[in-house]
Every structure is written in structure tokens, then in C-alpha cells.
Design a protein around this nucleic acid. Structure first.
Length: 294
DNA sequence: AAGAACTCCTGTTGGC
DNA sequence: TGCCAACAGGAGTTCT
């Protein structure tokens, strides 16, 4: 599911129930997700209080009393549901409807102070939960070498130009590389490249400095990355599956996709007569208009 | 050592 | 209808 806007949406949904809450009991129902849970995972959480719920790249970070951080990644299919005492359960993530799996993929359950229950469900188990020391977190394997937050102050045209210098790969793979910029995924790379009018097949070096100055392409790209992420966060992220839900709590940015999942449709750019094409790069679908993305 | 290929896992979808 | 291949929003590991 989750690229930066979806993870941020989940963070905002979990924050009111998790921040300041204490873990009364933790159910870890299997030994691993994509990787094993850490030693004594449930035991180390129990009794701890969440001091704040943050996000870095596509990771959710529950900072804990006692100096550790609970790191959570949703992989492709992870989602959380929240059951408050006396209220109907609410699911956070793209699958915001009853999956009818009867809890078969409910792998972790947090029983929090105040009677709230937070359940992590992940059919494909590409997700991740681990514990790291807060003081050394930035050096830990998952965070070491991670690029800047695209919505933070360090993600600039000059930065991107410097990173693109001498890169032999194409624009699609370059922007998906979390060491370049942290949080973009397949959907938002496709959408940003469309908005910038850049072909995903173009060499990443087209963004590098020319005669010591950033190119027009790099100048176009950075603002549209910010815009597409901010719009998606504002829309509550994207939801790829069909669903119906009365309370309207889910994201609807998928209705604003210009290219993603729109193979064969006319290009959305005013005046362009092109058709959205699907191709495969690095084993993953790319959608783009071959007419106006050059 | 960058870059591409392969891998983990289950569920859904589309074509025959 | 059933069957099966292709595909799905990620990223760590292993190759070249």
C-alpha cells in the first residue's frame, strides 16, 4: 500500500490513540513478518508509554519511554485497525473495509491503556516491526543512508542535481531509490514524472548540474514532487481497491491519478493527444504518456 | 561499487 | 465455472 502519503495518513490516524498511551499487553502471533520480530518483542513493549508517533520515509516510529523506538513498516499490504472501547472498529490504510479474513492475518495486537486495541494486519507479510535505540537510530540499518524527506528542507534542486551526477540509471529507478529521496514509491514517481513532463526512461543524469547550474528539468521536477505528495496527503492518500464505507475516512487521491493505472486512456494534459502507456522497469509497472513526457 | 535481478508472501484479476 | 499466469503501493540480498 504505502508510500509516504499513505504512511503519513496512517500516522495521523494512529496518533490520537497511541500518543501518550501505554502498552498494557502485546500479542505477537507469529515469529516473523518479512524478518523476525526482535527478541522478547512483546515483553519489551509492555509497560512502555508512547511519547510521540512520528514518521521517517515510509516507516512509522513510536517513540517509547525508556529510550527505544518501535519501528513499523507496512510493506505492501500492511494496515492497522483501531478498536476503541465502546466504538466500532476503524481500519487505517488502503483496505478500509472488512476484508472478511476473520483475523487470519492479524499478526500483532496492541492492548493500550484506556481500553483501545490497535491491530496490525498484513496478508503478504512484507511489513516489518523492530525496536531500535533512539540515540543511535539514524545509524541503524533501516535508517542509515536514507535520503532526505522530500517535504523537508534538505530536498532541493541543488541536492537532487548533485545526487544525479554520474548516475547511469533511468529517472524512474533513480527516484524510487530511497537513498536519493525517502518516501516516494511507484505511484508517486509515475505521477510526478507526468507532471514534470519527463520520460521515466530518460537518464537520471539529465537532472545533474550543467555548467554548474541546475537544469530546467530538475527545476521542474522538485516542485511537482512536493505538490503531488502534499495533495495526496491532503486527500488522505490513495486507495487502490474498490470499497464502500460510510464514514468517508479513507483516502481518495487515486481519483486524481493522471497516469497510474490508466493504460490506454487519453493523456490528461490539456492539448496533448497522447495515450497513457504501460511498460515494465525493474520488474514494476510504469505508466507514462510517450507524447508529452520527453 | 553501482545497478539490475531475484526474493520474500498471499490475494485478486483477467484471459482462456 | 475452473484453472492458471500475471500482477500488486517495498526493499533487503545477491549477482554481475
Amino acid at each position: 500500500m504505502p508510500e509516504l502519503p499513505e504512511v503519513e495518513t496512517v500516522r495521523r490516524g494512529l496518533e490520537p490513540v497511541m500518543a501518550k498511551a501505554r502498552f498494557l499487553r502485546v500479542e505477537q502471533r507469529r515469529p516473523d513478518l518479512r524478518v523476525p520480530f526482535p527478541e522478547r518483542f512483546a515483553e519489551r513493549l509492555t509497560g512502555r508509554t508512547v511519547t510521540r508517533l512520528a514518521r521517517r520515509a515510509k516507516y512509522l516510529l513510536a517513540h517509547l519511554s525508556g529510550g527505544e523506538v518501535l519501528v513499523m513498516h507496512l510493506g505492501m499490504s500492511g494496515r492497522f485497525s483501531v478498536a476503541r472501547a465502546g466504538r466500532r472498529p476503524r481500519i487505517l490504510g488502503e483496505y478500509e473495509y472488512d476484508t472478511g479474513d476473520n483475523g487470519a492475518h492479524d499478526h500483532v495486537v496492541f492492548h493500550l491503556s484506556g481500553g483501545t486495541t490497535v491491530t496490525y494486519n498484513d496478508p503478504r507479510r512484507f511489513g516489518l516491526m523492530t525496536l531500535v535505540d533512539e540515540a543511535t537510530m539514524s545509524e541503524s540499518p533501516h535508517f542509515h543512508g536514507l535520503g532526505p524527506e522530500p517535504l523537508g528542507p534538505d530536498f532541493t534542486v541543488e541536492y537532487l542535481a548533485r545526487m544525479a551526477q554520474g548516475r547511469a540509471t533511468d529517472l524512474k529507478a533513480f527516484l524510487l531509490d530511497q537513498r536519493v529521496v525517502a518516501g516516494l514509491g511507484n505511484i508517486y514517481v509515475c505521477e510526478a514524472l507526468f507532471r514534470a513532463g519527463l520520460s521515466p526512461n530518460r537518464a537520471a543524469t539529465c537532472l545533474a548540474l550543467k555548467s554548474g547550474r541546475p537544469t530546467d528539468r530538475a527545476r521542474r521536477l522538485v516542485p511537482v514532487i512536493l505538490a503531488v505528495l502534499e495533495e495526496a496527503i491532503g486527500a488522505g492518500g490513495s486507495t487502490l481497491r474498490d470499497y464502500r464505507q460510510a464514514d468517508g475516512a479513507t483516502g481518495d487521491f487515486q481519483e486524481r491519478f493522471a497516469v497510474y493505472g490508466r493504460e490506454g486512456e487519453p493523456c490528461a494534459r490539456p492539448g496533448c493527444r497522447g495515450i497513457v502507456r504501460r511498460s515494465v522497469q525493474a520488474g514494476r509497472s510504469t505508466f507514462h504518456c510517450g507524447t508529452c513526457q520527453r
